[in-house]
């Protein structure tokens, strides 16, 4: 910090939720303290409520027809645009990650780099996953039989703990790459990168509602999402073991698809396709062949 900046009082940011393309405060009016690992106060984050979670589901459902109906090429362009915009905010995220996690600048920068590249990885998958996961099936009869993957719908994601940007992007990007829409519950200890990422998403031609970001307590937000009739799938990556069991049980009532990694993920490793296929349905079309 130079003398001139020390003399000037900086402007603090009011962090808000991201729902339906807008940045509302929590309807509950609640916030909680966000601090560095050694306890220095950074900001107030919204403490989202059950009602906020339901609003986010409504927004995600509303966005689903358009997003899932967009061409895969168009979705790929938008995911790549997110990478471009994230690259432009590299410094902001590096500083935010260093503060949130107490890591040095190099490690934080490496995480930002990897998060940008992760968007690029999934941008390339939008128009390839059906070529890898789909098939024409040689049925024993005069029929064309074609299987194609389709997005499952609205996916509620409990973001991983301890990787507030790379981990977050690694779970979010594959959900939306294939045309799902998402309600994301951020890492409660480090919610600011998620809310800043929302600003990137809001300026990347991503239609409002495709991604909705909630900050607060997973134990409070998880149950209304897991039990919601209009949520099709749950990603429990960041849920504690006890919470995950409860949410899986709640989700059983509506037979939601569940993705719950059995072991802790290394988000710096090759992501593979598992997170893409976890949130896909397979549709098989039969059509007769004959004059």
């Amino acid at each position: 910090m130079s003398d001139t900046s020390a003399a000037r009082l900086s402007v603090l940011k009011t962090y808000k939720l991201f729902i339906g393309g807008a940045f509302p405060r929590s309807e509950s009016g609640r916030v909680y303290d966000v601090t560095t690992p050694d306890g220095r106060w950074l900001a107030n984050a919204p403490l989202a409520s059950r009602k906020d979670a339901r609003d986010a589901v409504v927004a995600a459902r509303k966005a689903f027809p358009k997003w899932s109906g967009a061409t895969a090429y168009n979705r790929g362009q938008i995911l790549y645009r997110i990478a471009e915009m994230l690259q432009g905010r590299h410094d902001q995220f590096r500083i935010q990650l260093a503060e949130a996690q107490g890591v040095d600048a190099d490690r934080a920068a490496a995480a930002v780099d990897a998060a940008i590249d992760r968007w690029v990885w999934y941008a390339g998958w939008t128009d390839k996953i059906s070529q890898v996961a789909g098939a024409t099936n040689p049925v024993a009869g005069p029929y064309l039989n074609l299987s194609s993957p389709e997005p499952t719908g609205v996916v509620a994601v409990v973001a991983p703990v301890g990787s507030p940007l790379l981990g977050l992007v690694s779970v979010l990007a594959p959900v939306i790459a294939t045309g799902n829409t998402a309600v994301l519950v951020a890492d409660p200890a480090a919610p600011l990168p998620a809310l800043t990422l929302a600003e990137v998403l809001a300026t990347s031609d991503l239609p409002g509602g495709v991604v909705n970001v909630l900050t607060g307590r997973p134990a409070e937000l998880g149950p209304p999402l897991a039990g919601h009739q209009d949520v099709n799938a749950l990603d429990l990556t960041g849920a504690s073991p006890d919470l995950a069991v409860d949410l899986e049980a709640a989700a059983a009532e509506t037979l939601k698809r569940i993705h719950r990694p059995r072991t802790a993920e290394d988000f710096t490793a090759d992501p593979g396709t598992g997170r893409l296929t976890a949130f896909l349905e397979t549709k098989t079309v039969w059509h007769p062949i004959g004059v």
């Binding site: 790549y80 390339g124 998958w125 128009d127």
Partner: peptide
């Protein structure tokens, strides 16, 4: 442009190409 965009995405996915 679309052709470059499409094949760009394959460059790091070749083991997935079957």
């Amino acid at each position: 442009a679309a052709h470059f965009f499409y094949y760009a995405g394959w460059a790091d996915k070749l083991p997935h190409a079957g």
